Amino acid sequence: MPKTTLVVRADEDPWTPAELAEVRTELQADLARLHLELDQTARDLQDLLRDGVDGAGNDQADVGSKGLERDAEMSLAANQRELLHQTEKALDRLEHGTYGQCEICGEPIGKMRLMAFPRATQCMTCKRREERR
Rank of each mutant, 00 (worst) to 15 (best):
A56P: 03
W15N: 02
H85A: 09
I104C: 11
P14D: 08
A77E: 14
E22D: 10
R81L: 09
E69R: 14
P118D: 05
R133N: 03
L83D: 13
M1A: 11
G57P: 02
A42L: 08
M74Y: 05
E130Y: 06
D44P: 03
L36Q: 15
E95L: 07
D59I: 00
L94A: 04
L20Y: 01
D44L: 08
A56M: 10
G55N: 07
D30G: 04
Q122S: 15
R9C: 13
H85L: 02
V63A: 06
T16I: 03
H35W: 01
H96Y: 07
A56Q: 14
I104D: 15
Q28V: 04
T125H: 09
H96G: 06
A18K: 09
Q122W: 07
G106L: 04
V8F: 00
Q101V: 11
M74S: 10
P108W: 04
A61M: 09
L84Q: 12
E107I: 00
R9Y: 01
A32C: 00
C123M: 08
L49W: 07
L36P: 02
A56L: 12
Q122T: 15
G52F: 03
E12M: 07
R119C: 02
G52C: 04
K127G: 04
A116N: 10
G55H: 12
D51I: 06
L91V: 03
K111L: 04
V23R: 05
A78Q: 13
T87K: 01
V63T: 12
N79K: 15
D54P: 04
R9T: 12
E103W: 01
E95H: 08
R119S: 09
D92K: 11
E26W: 05
D62S: 10
Q46V: 04
C102E: 05
L114P: 00
Q60N: 07
A21Q: 10
D92H: 07
R129F: 04
I104Q: 14
D11I: 03
D51F: 01
T5H: 10
L68I: 11
E107C: 05
R128N: 13
A29K: 14
M74W: 00
G52E: 12
Y99T: 02
A10I: 10
L76A: 13
K66G: 03
A32T: 14
Q80I: 14
P14L: 03
C123E: 11
L27H: 03
L38C: 02
P17A: 14
V23F: 02
T87M: 02
V23D: 05
R133A: 06
A120R: 01
L20A: 09
R113Y: 06
I104T: 13
R9M: 08
G57T: 07
M115F: 12
C105K: 06
K3P: 01
E103F: 00
D11K: 07
C123R: 02
Q40K: 14
Q28T: 13
A116C: 01
M1I: 02
R24C: 01
L48D: 12
G100S: 05
E95N: 09
A120N: 10
E12C: 11
N79S: 15
G110V: 10
E103R: 11
E22I: 00
M112H: 14
R43D: 14
E37A: 13
A77W: 08
L36W: 07
S65Y: 05
E88S: 05
T16L: 01
G100C: 08
D59Q: 02
T5K: 11
Q46I: 01
L68D: 14
R24I: 00
L83A: 13
L76E: 10
